[in-house]
Amino acid sequence: MESLRDKILQKYIQSNRPFSVLFEVTKRCMCKCIHCYLADNSDNELSLKEIKDLFIQLKNIGVVNLGLTGGEPFLRKDIFEIIKYAYENHFFISILTTGILLDSEKIKLLKSYNVNQFEISILGAKAETHDKIMNYKGAFDKTIENINLLKKENAIISLKATIIKQNYKELVQMANIAKEFNVEFKANINIAPKTDGNKITLNYMLNEEELNEIDLKLINGGLIPGEDYSGGALLTCNAGKLSIGISSNGEIYPCLLFRKSIGNIRKKSLQDILIKNPSNFLKKLRKIKEEDVKRCYKCNIKKYCNRCPGISYLETKKIASANPSACYIANLVFNKISKN
């Protein structure tokens, strides 16, 4: 039987309202991760006043879950005013961060604003590996120190690991770190191209030999909070329906990885962009069915695949195509499993 929650979510979908939003408060970051999907770190960020107006619009269209991400969200000087305003408007707030810029005072302040969910990047089990991938000396030690502080405040933490050539040998130890902290571990082996379509980041993906060395049971997704990739290829998802992404300059996307603008809140209201006058692209995306993604729908190894509609669009600029990097990984995974 359908639960009340399912019925409510259905109502959101039918009235074209998102339930969850991931908001990139800034693109700026002190780290320069070698595989980062953001093509540039500078743009005309929304001001605090614009963000407050945005939050009221989000509340009025019914948004409940609000994820704050970056860049590094805590680089914004007004981040605590942003969080306070989100708290006052009763959003359930989660934060995606490197964890580097926190301290005990900030963590206590976050707790007072009911911020209890954090997704923190971990890119190595050793400081040397993690810091080198992030291009930031001291990152690992600081992050571990702050995870300890967050745990003392009973925060709910996910450690997010993107597994690449530079850190795959430390996958088990990274999972053990999560185990020791008693937190969720979300490792993924798919990498997104840069937001401008540049595929240089894909060079860091594992090859067959490297993939054969890792324990696939430790890989379960983690590119987009809330999405679980363990069930195979995602032919459709909630992007543009139950969730949207908002960039630091007010551009609205189906998802922060699905980098096709559907409007900008500096030019139009959210009501207009999402409900009253959605773009043709958004209308098409909302209607898409699994069978429309023809090649993947028929694919006999799709259960080994981590296709993401957003990454697929970044790679191909098509809405219903296979995404080549996911096909590549799926084939490797299938081969590995077939051999065993």
Partner: peptide
């Protein structure tokens, strides 16, 4: 209650608890 998010959707009030378990309309 402070820990409840309240939203109005098409003349229906939805009360949601953070865990997502508690929901009332």
């Amino acid at each position: 209650n402070d820990a409840i998010s309240v939203r109005e959707i098409d003349n229906e009030i939805i009360f949601i608890e953070e865990s997502g378990k508690g929901i009332h309309t």
